[in-house]
Computed example of a mutant assay.
Amino acid sequence: MNTERTRILLASAAILAASACTNNDGRLDLTQGDPTWGDANRATMAAQVIDPSPEYDSPIPPTSAANAVRAADAYREGNVEQPERIRTTDAGPD
């Protein structure tokens, strides 16, 4: 009996709380009347969309086969110049 009364009380509270989120038309309104609600998400999603028909100055980007061959040969021979190690925990110059 006590658990049934608790369930009814909780259901009533949930219904009252949900009714506070409706506007005058009775529709659910989570934006609290702010017309710009969600603009940041929409702008972020739009920034991540790739242009389906990009236009470039030149149809084929300039490349150098000779440089590519030298880089591949250096990699195979183990003559690749190692980059300088940088510690990510350094805050700056000592």
Rank of each mutant, 00 (worst) to 15 (best):
Y75M: 03
T36P: 00
T3P: 03
A14S: 10
I8M: 04
V69F: 14
W37N: 12
A13G: 02
A11Q: 14
L10P: 00
A68L: 14
A74M: 07
T63F: 09
P35K: 02
A91D: 09
D25C: 08
Q82K: 10
D90H: 09
D34S: 05
W37A: 13
D57P: 02
A66P: 00
M1Q: 05
A46H: 02
D90V: 13
T36M: 12
R70A: 13
A17G: 13
P61N: 09
A68N: 08
I60E: 08
P59S: 12
G33F: 05
L10T: 03
N67F: 10
M45F: 08
P61M: 06
N41R: 08
T36R: 08
A65E: 06
P52A: 04
V69E: 10
S58R: 15
R7L: 09
S19G: 14
A18R: 08
G26N: 01
S53L: 13
Q82V: 09
I8Y: 05
A71R: 01
A68I: 05
Q32C: 08
S12A: 12
T3E: 15
T89Y: 11
P35I: 12
R70G: 01
N24F: 12
P61D: 04
P52Y: 03
A65R: 08
S58L: 09
M1I: 15
E81S: 11
A14Y: 05
N23Y: 06
V80D: 02
D57E: 06
A46G: 01
R7K: 12
V49C: 01
E84D: 08
A18E: 14
R7P: 02
G33K: 00
T63N: 02
G38Q: 06
N67E: 11
I50R: 06
E55A: 14
Q82E: 09
D51Q: 09
G33M: 07
P61G: 03
S12D: 15
T31N: 04
D29S: 14
I60G: 03
E55I: 12
D90K: 10
I50S: 13
D34H: 12
L16Q: 05
C21D: 08
C21W: 13
N79L: 15
A71T: 03
A11S: 11
R27C: 08
E77T: 07
R7H: 06
A47H: 00
D51I: 00
L10K: 07
A20H: 07
N23M: 05
